[in-house]
């Protein structure tokens, strides 16, 4: 079966690890546990264009404490840029991460995950910010807590990677 490397990118505490946990293990924890390095999970995805084994690289949050290295991105067939809708500041690093990705592996399929969509009361993004996100790639609103949009996001990206 075809293997595809997928990278999860974004600043800290946007929910990258939670999205992977929800998708791979169907679990969610309210507690924020930072990711110090890289964790790789495998999951077989069935799409209309066939099956693929995803190697999901959950990469630590990119911030002033740890910057993402280009070598982690090598060989990636697709990636997610993850933002937290309750923190406007989580959008700031996404354009730079997209550039790093494109400089390293070229233009490969990408989806923007606007996470924590279940937290309506704390939502900080307005139309302007959501439009700015849409300029980076197709946006999917997700909630690692409820599972909203998570399966759809991985299936969409895999379909795109398989040429759909």
């Amino acid at each position: 079966m075809m293997q595809k490397k997928v990278c999860m990118l974004g600043t800290f505490s946007v929910g990258k690890t939670s999205l992977v946990s929800r998708y791979v293990r169907s679990i969610f924890s309210e507690r924020y546990l930072t990711t110090i390095g890289v964790k790789i999970d495998k999951k077989v995805v069935a799409t209309a264009r066939g099956e693929a084994t995803l190697l999901i690289w959950d990469i630590y949050g990119d911030d002033e404490f740890q910057a993402v290295r280009a070598s982690f991105l090598q060989g990636a067939s697709g990636y997610f840029l993850v933002a937290d809708g309750t923190r406007r500041s989580s959008l700031a690093r996404l354009p730079a991460l997209k550039s790093l990705m494109e400089d390293t592996v070229g233009k490969v399929p990408c989806r923007i995950l606007l996470n924590k969509v279940d937290l309506h009361a704390d939502w900080e993004l307005g139309t302007v910010e959501e439009q700015a996100l849409a300029e980076l790639g197709p946006v999917i609103k997700t909630s690692a807590k409820t599972g909203q949009g998570v399966e759809e996001a991985f299936v969409q990206l895999t379909t795109h990677m398989l040429g759909g």
Binding site: T35, I36, G37, V38, K39, Y60, Q66, S71
Partner: peptide, 27 residues
């Protein structure tokens, strides 16, 4: 994770000078 790290390591090992590189942590 070593898949990507060993690419960097191979460059160091094939070079002429002694040296050391370290990965980030991985789970």
């Amino acid at each position: 994770f070593l898949e990507s790290f060993l690419c960097d390591a191979a460059q160091l090992w094939s070079g002429p000078a002694p040296g050391r590189i370290e990965s980030v942590s991985f789970a």
